[in-house]
Simulated assay, not measured.
Amino acid sequence: MKQLQQFFQDKTVHTLLDVGTGSGSFITVLKETFKHTRFTGIDPDMPSLEEAAKAHPDAEFKSMTGGQLEFPDSTFDAASISMAMHHLPNVQQTFKEMQRIVKPGGWIIINELFSNNLNAAQEVHKSMHHFRSTIDRLNGVCHNETFTREEILHHIEKAGLKICETFNQQKPHQEPSPEEITERKEKLTEMLNQVKDKPEYNELKQQIPEIEKALKQHGFQMATRVVVVAKVLKD
Protein backbone atom coordinates (compact mmCIF):
# COMPACT_ATOMS: atom_id res chain seq x y z
CA MET A 1 0.00 0.00 0.00
CA LYS A 2 1.91 3.03 -1.28
CA GLN A 3 -0.39 5.47 0.54
CA LEU A 4 0.38 3.77 3.85
CA GLN A 5 4.10 3.88 3.13
CA GLN A 6 3.91 7.57 2.31
CA PHE A 7 1.96 8.38 5.47
CA PHE A 8 4.37 6.58 7.79
CA GLN A 9 7.63 7.45 6.00
CA ASP A 10 8.55 10.05 8.65
CA LYS A 11 7.00 8.25 11.64
CA THR A 12 8.52 5.64 13.94
CA VAL A 13 6.59 2.52 14.90
CA HIS A 14 8.63 0.07 16.99
CA THR A 15 5.77 -2.22 18.04
CA LEU A 16 2.41 -3.04 16.42
CA LEU A 17 -0.48 -5.28 17.50
CA ASP A 18 -2.59 -6.85 14.74
CA VAL A 19 -6.09 -7.64 16.07
CA GLY A 20 -7.98 -10.51 14.44
CA THR A 21 -4.80 -11.45 12.65
CA GLY A 22 -6.08 -14.79 11.30
CA SER A 23 -3.28 -16.39 9.32
CA GLY A 24 -1.23 -13.19 9.46
CA SER A 25 -1.98 -11.94 5.95
CA PHE A 26 -2.24 -8.28 6.98
CA ILE A 27 1.09 -8.48 8.79
CA THR A 28 2.56 -9.45 5.42
CA VAL A 29 1.12 -6.21 3.98
CA LEU A 30 2.22 -4.10 6.94
CA LYS A 31 5.81 -5.33 6.70
CA GLU A 32 6.07 -3.46 3.40
CA THR A 33 5.59 -0.22 5.36
CA PHE A 34 7.08 -1.08 8.76
CA LYS A 35 10.51 -2.54 8.02
CA HIS A 36 11.87 -2.51 11.57
CA THR A 37 8.72 -3.10 13.60
CA ARG A 38 8.11 -5.91 16.08
CA PHE A 39 4.72 -7.47 15.36
CA THR A 40 2.29 -9.22 17.68
CA GLY A 41 -0.88 -10.85 16.35
CA ILE A 42 -3.93 -11.96 18.30
CA ASP A 43 -6.89 -14.08 17.26
CA PRO A 44 -9.23 -16.52 19.07
CA ASP A 45 -8.72 -19.22 16.40
CA MET A 46 -5.74 -21.44 17.20
CA PRO A 47 -5.39 -23.14 13.77
CA SER A 48 -5.16 -19.69 12.14
CA LEU A 49 -2.54 -18.60 14.66
CA GLU A 50 -0.48 -21.69 13.88
CA GLU A 51 -0.53 -20.72 10.20
CA ALA A 52 0.45 -17.15 11.10
CA ALA A 53 3.37 -18.35 13.20
CA LYS A 54 4.69 -20.38 10.27
CA ALA A 55 4.37 -17.41 7.93
CA HIS A 56 5.93 -14.96 10.40
CA PRO A 57 8.42 -16.72 12.71
CA ASP A 58 9.78 -13.30 13.72
CA ALA A 59 6.41 -12.22 15.20
CA GLU A 60 4.60 -13.23 18.38
CA PHE A 61 1.08 -14.64 18.37
CA LYS A 62 -1.41 -15.05 21.20
CA SER A 63 -4.92 -16.45 21.48
CA MET A 64 -7.37 -13.76 22.65
CA THR A 65 -10.27 -11.62 21.47
CA GLY A 66 -10.20 -7.97 20.48
CA GLY A 67 -12.78 -7.10 23.10
CA GLN A 68 -10.46 -8.15 25.94
CA LEU A 69 -6.82 -7.51 25.14
CA GLU A 70 -4.53 -8.99 27.76
CA PHE A 71 -1.85 -6.30 27.55
CA PRO A 72 -1.01 -3.38 29.88
CA ASP A 73 -2.04 0.14 28.94
CA SER A 74 0.16 1.91 26.36
CA THR A 75 2.07 -1.22 25.32
CA PHE A 76 2.24 -0.65 21.55
CA ASP A 77 3.08 2.22 19.20
CA ALA A 78 0.28 1.15 16.85
CA ALA A 79 -2.50 -1.39 16.37
CA SER A 80 -4.29 -2.66 13.29
CA ILE A 81 -7.42 -4.57 12.38
CA SER A 82 -8.01 -5.91 8.87
CA MET A 83 -11.14 -7.48 7.38
CA ALA A 84 -12.39 -8.24 10.88
CA MET A 85 -14.72 -5.41 11.93
CA HIS A 86 -17.70 -7.37 10.61
CA HIS A 87 -16.71 -10.29 12.86
CA LEU A 88 -16.79 -8.25 16.08
CA PRO A 89 -19.64 -8.76 18.57
CA ASN A 90 -19.00 -5.22 19.85
CA VAL A 91 -17.05 -2.89 17.54
CA GLN A 92 -16.81 -0.06 20.07
CA GLN A 93 -15.48 -2.33 22.83
CA THR A 94 -12.71 -3.56 20.54
CA PHE A 95 -11.78 -0.01 19.49
CA LYS A 96 -11.76 0.98 23.17
CA GLU A 97 -9.35 -1.84 23.96
CA MET A 98 -7.14 -1.01 20.97
CA GLN A 99 -6.89 2.59 22.12
CA ARG A 100 -6.04 1.47 25.66
CA ILE A 101 -3.06 -0.64 24.62
CA VAL A 102 -1.70 1.97 22.15
CA LYS A 103 0.52 4.75 23.48
CA PRO A 104 -0.85 8.32 23.49
CA GLY A 105 -0.36 9.83 20.05
CA GLY A 106 -0.02 6.35 18.53
CA TRP A 107 -1.85 4.96 15.55
CA ILE A 108 -4.68 2.59 14.69
CA ILE A 109 -4.94 1.24 11.15
CA ILE A 110 -8.27 -0.14 9.92
CA ASN A 111 -8.64 -2.10 6.67
CA GLU A 112 -12.23 -3.13 5.98
CA LEU A 113 -14.33 -4.04 2.95
CA PHE A 114 -17.56 -2.08 2.45
CA SER A 115 -20.91 -2.86 0.89
CA ASN A 116 -21.96 0.23 -1.08
CA ASN A 117 -20.99 1.75 -4.45
CA LEU A 118 -19.82 -1.62 -5.79
CA ASN A 119 -19.76 -2.75 -9.39
CA ALA A 120 -21.60 -5.88 -10.60
CA ALA A 121 -18.61 -8.20 -10.09
CA GLN A 122 -18.10 -6.85 -6.57
CA GLU A 123 -21.78 -7.40 -5.84
CA VAL A 124 -21.14 -11.08 -6.61
CA HIS A 125 -18.46 -11.12 -3.92
CA LYS A 126 -20.82 -9.37 -1.50
CA SER A 127 -23.60 -11.90 -2.12
CA MET A 128 -21.17 -14.78 -1.49
CA HIS A 129 -19.87 -13.10 1.66
CA HIS A 130 -23.38 -12.48 2.98
CA PHE A 131 -24.30 -16.09 2.23
CA ARG A 132 -21.39 -17.25 4.36
CA SER A 133 -22.16 -14.74 7.12
CA THR A 134 -25.75 -16.03 7.30
CA ILE A 135 -24.51 -19.62 7.64
CA ASP A 136 -22.10 -18.59 10.40
CA ARG A 137 -24.80 -16.76 12.34
CA LEU A 138 -27.11 -19.76 12.10
CA ASN A 139 -24.26 -21.79 13.62
CA GLY A 140 -23.80 -19.31 16.45
CA VAL A 141 -20.68 -17.64 15.02
CA CYS A 142 -20.49 -13.83 15.08
CA HIS A 143 -20.31 -12.80 11.42
CA ASN A 144 -22.21 -9.66 10.50
CA GLU A 145 -23.01 -8.42 7.01
CA THR A 146 -20.56 -5.86 5.67
CA PHE A 147 -20.80 -2.22 6.71
CA THR A 148 -21.15 0.68 4.30
CA ARG A 149 -18.11 2.93 3.98
CA GLU A 150 -19.92 5.63 5.93
CA GLU A 151 -20.76 3.21 8.75
CA ILE A 152 -17.11 2.20 9.06
CA LEU A 153 -15.97 5.83 9.36
CA HIS A 154 -18.79 6.53 11.82
CA HIS A 155 -17.66 3.68 14.08
CA ILE A 156 -14.11 5.02 14.05
CA GLU A 157 -15.13 8.59 14.87
CA LYS A 158 -17.61 7.40 17.50
CA ALA A 159 -14.72 5.66 19.27
CA GLY A 160 -13.02 9.04 19.70
CA LEU A 161 -10.26 8.41 17.18
CA LYS A 162 -8.94 11.21 14.97
CA ILE A 163 -9.02 10.14 11.32
CA CYS A 164 -5.83 11.33 9.62
CA GLU A 165 -5.85 9.43 6.32
CA THR A 166 -8.35 7.42 4.28
CA PHE A 167 -8.04 5.75 0.91
CA ASN A 168 -9.74 2.95 -1.02
CA GLN A 169 -8.10 -0.26 -2.18
CA GLN A 170 -9.31 -2.52 -4.98
CA LYS A 171 -8.21 -5.89 -6.26
CA PRO A 172 -8.49 -6.60 -10.01
CA HIS A 173 -11.55 -8.02 -11.73
CA GLN A 174 -11.42 -11.73 -12.52
CA GLU A 175 -13.12 -13.74 -15.25
CA PRO A 176 -13.46 -17.12 -13.53
CA SER A 177 -13.01 -20.30 -15.56
CA PRO A 178 -15.79 -22.93 -15.62
CA GLU A 179 -13.71 -24.95 -13.17
CA GLU A 180 -13.45 -22.02 -10.78
CA ILE A 181 -17.19 -21.38 -10.98
CA THR A 182 -17.84 -25.04 -10.17
CA GLU A 183 -15.41 -24.85 -7.26
CA ARG A 184 -17.10 -21.75 -5.79
CA LYS A 185 -20.53 -23.41 -6.19
CA GLU A 186 -19.25 -26.50 -4.37
CA LYS A 187 -17.96 -24.34 -1.52
CA LEU A 188 -21.36 -22.67 -1.18
CA THR A 189 -23.05 -26.07 -1.16
CA GLU A 190 -20.58 -27.31 1.46
CA MET A 191 -21.43 -24.32 3.66
CA LEU A 192 -25.15 -24.87 3.08
CA ASN A 193 -24.87 -28.47 4.28
CA GLN A 194 -23.87 -27.15 7.70
CA VAL A 195 -27.45 -25.92 8.24
CA LYS A 196 -29.52 -28.78 6.81
CA ASP A 197 -31.57 -28.90 9.99
CA LYS A 198 -32.37 -25.15 10.01
CA PRO A 199 -35.66 -23.69 8.69
CA GLU A 200 -33.64 -21.25 6.55
CA TYR A 201 -32.07 -24.10 4.56
CA ASN A 202 -34.42 -24.06 1.54
CA GLU A 203 -34.30 -20.28 1.16
CA LEU A 204 -30.49 -20.32 1.26
CA LYS A 205 -30.41 -23.22 -1.22
CA GLN A 206 -32.27 -21.09 -3.76
CA GLN A 207 -29.54 -18.43 -3.56
CA ILE A 208 -26.81 -20.72 -4.91
CA PRO A 209 -28.00 -20.89 -8.57
CA GLU A 210 -28.60 -17.11 -8.46
CA ILE A 211 -25.01 -16.51 -7.30
CA GLU A 212 -23.72 -18.96 -9.91
CA LYS A 213 -25.61 -17.13 -12.67
CA ALA A 214 -24.26 -13.74 -11.55
CA LEU A 215 -20.73 -15.16 -11.35
CA LYS A 216 -20.95 -16.37 -14.97
CA GLN A 217 -22.45 -13.07 -16.14
CA HIS A 218 -20.34 -10.52 -14.25
CA GLY A 219 -17.21 -12.32 -13.11
CA PHE A 220 -15.74 -11.78 -9.67
CA GLN A 221 -14.01 -8.92 -7.90
CA MET A 222 -13.34 -8.41 -4.22
CA ALA A 223 -15.45 -5.64 -2.69
CA THR A 224 -13.59 -2.36 -2.30
CA ARG A 225 -11.81 -1.84 1.00
CA VAL A 226 -11.32 1.41 2.86
CA VAL A 227 -8.05 1.90 4.70
CA VAL A 228 -8.10 4.35 7.60
CA VAL A 229 -5.21 5.66 9.66
CA ALA A 230 -6.43 7.16 12.91
CA LYS A 231 -4.58 8.82 15.78
CA VAL A 232 -5.10 7.85 19.41
CA LEU A 233 -6.06 10.87 21.48
CA LYS A 234 -5.83 10.31 25.20
CA ASP A 235 -4.23 11.89 28.26
Rank of each mutant, 00 (worst) to 15 (best):
M1Q: 12
M1S: 13
Q3Y: 11
Q6M: 02
Q9V: 08
K11Y: 12
T15C: 10
L16P: 03
T21K: 03
G22T: 06
G22D: 01
H36I: 00
G41D: 02
I42Q: 00
D45E: 10
S48V: 04
L49I: 09
A53D: 10
K54P: 04
D58M: 04
G66L: 06
E70V: 09
P72H: 11
P72E: 14
D77R: 09
I81Q: 08
I81E: 09
S82V: 05
A84H: 04
P89L: 05
Q93E: 15
F95M: 14
K96I: 02
K96F: 12
E97M: 02
M98V: 05
K103H: 07
L113Y: 07
S115V: 01
N117I: 01
N119L: 00
Q122F: 03
S127G: 12
M128Q: 14
N139S: 13
T148R: 01
R149A: 00
E151M: 06
L161K: 01
Q169D: 09
R184N: 11
M191N: 08
L192N: 06
K196E: 13
K198C: 03
K198N: 15
L204G: 03
Q206I: 08
Q207H: 01
I211M: 15
Q217P: 01
G219D: 13
A223M: 15
A230V: 10
K234V: 00
